[in-house]
Every structure is written in C-alpha cells, then in structure tokens.
Design a protein around this nucleic acid. Sequence first.
DNA 1: ATGTAC
Length: 480
Amino acid sequence: MSDLAVAPTGPARAAPWLHEIPASARRDMRVPARVYADEFLWERIRGDASLTQLMNVATLPGVHDAVYAMPDVHEGYGFPVGGVAAMRVEDGVVSPGGVGYDINCGVRLLVSELDRKALGTRLESLTHDLSRSIPSGWHANPELQLGPADLDRVLREGSAALVDRGLATPEDLTYTEAGGSLAGADPAAVSDRARSRGHDQLGTMGSGNHFVEIEVVDEILDAAAATVFGLRQGQVCVLIHTGSRGLGHQVCTDYVRLMGEVMPRYGITLPDPQLACAPIDSPEGQRYLGAMCAAANFAFANRQVITDAVRDAFGRAFGESGGLRLLYDVAHNIAKLEEHGGRKLWVHRKGATRAFGPTHPETPVAYRSAGQPVFIPGSMGTASYVLAGTDAALAGSFGSTCHGAGRALSRRAAKRAQSGGEVRKILEDQGIVVRCPSSAGLAEESPEAYKDVHRVVNVVEQAGLARRVARLRPVGVVKG
DNA sequence: ATGTAC
C-alpha cells in the first residue's frame, strides 16, 4: 500500500500526527481510514500489512464515520492490533477478529503506600514470591478449580462474583472498567470446550507479553492529575497485564468459525476471511456478543484473583499488604456498546485502550478532574506510562488511545536478533530482578522487538487522545 | 494471545 497518497485535505493537513486514507482509495471502503503517527512511525506503517488490514476494516457493513489506527499499530488476525472501529447497532456487524483472540486482555495498576527505599533488600524475595504464587505459562491455578455453577457466576458477574469469596473488595469493583462486570454476558453462549479450558485458569498469568511487574514511579508528568490518581515519585506499584486465557481464545475460535459459515446467508463479502462477522442483530452476532462479554468478565476476574495473590505476597514481605489499592483496570481488547454523537455503536478496540475524559459518566467520580486512567506498558525493562483520557478523544478516536509500545519485530525475528540469556543479562545489569522460566519467551519480548514507547505516547498526547500523568520504571519482572 | 495442529 506504499503507493497510497496521504489525503491532502481534512485532518491530515491540520495535524502532522494524523494521516488519512480517503474512502475513495479503494472501491470497497465505506469510510476513511485514519492513522495517528508521527513521520517516523508513519513511514513504517504506510507500507505495512496493518494499514491494508485497517482499510479492510473500513469495508465492513455498518462501519461508522471512520476507522482508526493508533501509533502502536501492527498486523493482527484480520483486524490490526491498535485498531478502532465503531459499528452501528442498526445495520452494523460484529467481528470476533476485531476484538482478538485474547478477549479483554487488559492492564491494571495497584498502588502501594511504600516507597522504593522500603522495598530495600526484599525486592528479590518479593519478586520470587510473586513468581511462585501466580501460576504462569501453561500452569493452571491449583487453588481455584471452578465447578460449572461457580464458573457460570464468574462468566455472568466477573469481578463481582469474587467479593463473597473475599478475593475482591467493593472498592476494587469501583475502580475496574464497567465495574468488572459486563451486563450483556451470556454464559450459555460459551462452549463446553471454552469452559473446560478456563475452569482452572482463573488467577493465572499466561505467557507471551503477559506479566506482573513491580514498578517505581520514576517521574510525575502532570502533578494535578497524579495527585488525583494518588501517585507520587518513588512510590512502589504493581502492573498486571493478562486476559481471558484459553477460555477467551476458544470463544474467538468458536465464533470465527461459526460466522465464517453463516456469512453467505447474510450476503456479506469480505476482503479477508479473517474478518468473519455477522450482523449485530443476527442470532450469531448476539450469541457472540454474549460470549464475548462473558469471556471479558472472566478476564476482569482473572486480574482480580491475581491482585489478591499480589496483596498476599506483599503481606508476607511487609507484614501487611502495603496498602495495595487498585488505581484502575482497563481493557484493550474488547467491543463495547457506547453512545457517540447520539448514536449507539459497538466500538471494537483491539490493542487500543478506552480513554474517556473528565466529563464522561463512566469515568470514576474520584477521577473526574483528571480523566479515566490509562496504562501503557512499554517493552519489558523499559518505561511504562500512566495516562489520563481526554474529552477530545471522544471525537478523535471514539474515546480511544494506544495500548503499548507495539511490536516492531515478529516473534521469530526477535528470537533471531537476541537470545533469552542476553536479554536477561541486559535487564539484570539495570538492577531489574527477573523471574521468567522461558528463555525463548524473554527473547520474544526483548526491548529490541518493540517500538519506542516514548514516541508512541508522545503521538497520542500531541493528538490530544490522552495526557501523560506519570512514567513508571520496572524493578521486578515476573513472566511466564 | 493460545493445550503455538481436530
């Protein structure tokens, strides 16, 4: 797609960080495709498969206004990672590929009352304890095997199902997107195979780019917003990144297959079969949305059970839990029913984070003067960012921002570039404690395999899609 | 991302 010209009119002229492919660029596009990127990132994106994928998304029936790519965009299954598309409820479709295989992959940040100095010599043992007490990789959770009724409740209620078990507090729910509980969940739409893959995976981290990291607040970038979020320099935090594990993966597999089969019945033709979809108001569309919400609830609950394990580990290290408070939990792989410009839309965000501003009713009351918190994990061993959503993001990207640094090298290319042992040494030389049994996993997640998170975050800030609040620095890394 | 192939 390198032969495509950037549109000479519209936002592309007014804003150097926004590039527009007009709908007229291809016969099958219904709306323009807009990409947030600086010149450096745009030069890489404009010839990349992810841009073709974004233009493919712009052909979907009922797609509203425009489709967007964030500066961390890269190729995904059908729909690019870092993509946003809003589908009208009346005539739109829902596409499992537009949510991704890891339904409600997301990030939460726990904030302690401890200072870096209080960590002292306990960092090594605390990191080790986290790696022992949070199952990762292929491991199940031996302490939480859910029977059918218990699993049903988690699928229906998400984190709210955990309050009775003492694994969540009401305050945790307040500071989770959607209260950690999506109302549209339909446990009956989740297949037996998906249930059997998930029943022993609640409270497990998984592998790939999933992690639990001990962080220190390295720099405050917006003092007022940091105060609202309760963040101060030197403070110890824990960043948790995981999703719905095998359960969500199976839901995606099931519905990509089903929609691929029934699409001809609805007269839908696509440029890429990986974008398999069904009308929102069809039985298959409704069933997927019910299963997707159930898998999303499982993911909220998964991060909540891990939160309980982190609090226990801090308790063992410091005698009490260190006051670990949930700052916020936000999804970056999900479709949500939202109102934009008076219209009801199913907003697909895949590798994109909701970033509502101060005036949005879903922004927690305590954060109304700052905006909804957003967490941007950088590559392993580099910085992560706390951002605040803006009201301007509503018009600029259906209230969305980026989700991470974004892959620059494929997993295979990353393994060719560096060995796991080399990556481990680079991290340890920086004083970072690493617990990761998989050497190949370390190589795949090496900083070299990712774009520059600082550059990505600068783009979304310049574009007004989020404001930088604080930068975090990892001191303990736990991976699968 | 993922019992990395029903």
